[in-house]
């Protein structure tokens, strides 16, 4: 589904990603972990098409197409979803109105008819249950005055509405209390199936107790320095990132 090869990217003159290789297949859940400043969020941003980052080398293919050649909206319509670490607040735009536009633009892209009001409402009701989000909240201005938990639930609600093939969750666990974390994880787990895939970007192992990954990768200094299964996350939690840093730094000095 997603194939990243030797990806180098940075901002202005500073290189942040220094040769990422990663392949994600349908049905898989991958977690990217790493210390602060390792490039986790940059990777998520580059994949979603945020234009302040410049890709200097490497390639990314998504569903067999050149991802880096696509505008952010094309990536979304092709089935990529980014749950933002800091969802923006937009006064004057309700979630309902905006997600309707988003759903219909995606349907148009796939050659499908736009949803009529009744079918749209039905779909919304169904997905609202997934993350226990309230209709009243969705009628309000997008994320304006929402709590941290409400914002993240809104992200997962939008994901469920758009039915992406690959969902990238950028630190979705940050700022969540344990109840909100459970709700969000539950939404993800219900949406998870053999046709789609997830890339979880997280600093802590905690999220992975609720969304169990198939693979865990450790990002450090812009490279994936270690890959493994979910046990790797537990090892990191126990030993901290320092043991990986020391290992990697020792190797690069040789």
């Amino acid at each position: 589904m997603l194939k990243i090869e030797n990806l180098h990217a940075g901002i202005e003159e500073k290189e942040i990603l220094k040769g990422i290789n990663l392949e994600i297949k349908a049905g898989e859940v991958h977690a990217i972990m790493g210390p602060n400043g390792s490039g986790k969020s940059t990777l998520a941003s580059v994949l979603a098409g945020r234009d302040q980052f410049e890709v200097t080398e490497g390639s990314v293919s998504f569903m067999g197409k050149d991802l880096l050649d696509m505008a952010p909206e094309e990536r979304a319509r092709e089935g990529m979803f980014l749950a933002f670490q800091y969802p923006v607040e937009i006064p004057g735009v309700s979630t309902t109105n905006f997600i309707k536009t988003a759903v219909n633009e995606t349907r148009k892209h796939r050659g499908e008819e736009p949803l009529d009001a009744v079918s749209f409402l039905k779909l919304m009701k169904e997905k609202m249950k997934l993350v226990q989000i309230d209709q009243a909240l969705l009628s309000r201005s997008l994320n304006e005055g929402f709590s941290g938990g409400e914002k993240k639930r809104n992200e997962i609600f939008q994901m469920a509405m758009l039915e992406p093939k690959l969902a990238i969750l950028d630190e979705t666990d940050s700022g969540l209390d344990i109840d909100a974390l459970r709700i969000v994880a539950n939404g993800v787990n219900q949406y998870r199936n053999s046709e789609n895939a997830f890339l979880l970007v997280t600093h802590y192992q905690r999220l992975l107790d609720y969304i169990v990954p198939d693979y865990v990768h450790v990002l450090y200094n812009g490279r994936i320095v270690r890959s493994g299964t979910k046990e790797l996350a537990l090892e990191l939690e126990a030993k901290g990132y320092d043991f990986i840093k020391n290992e990697v730094d020792a190797i690069s000095q040789d």
Binding site: G49, R50, E73, A76, A102
Partner: peptide
Amino acid sequence: FYLRARGL
């Protein structure tokens, strides 16, 4: 960017 990342 947020809106475009949702397909608008």
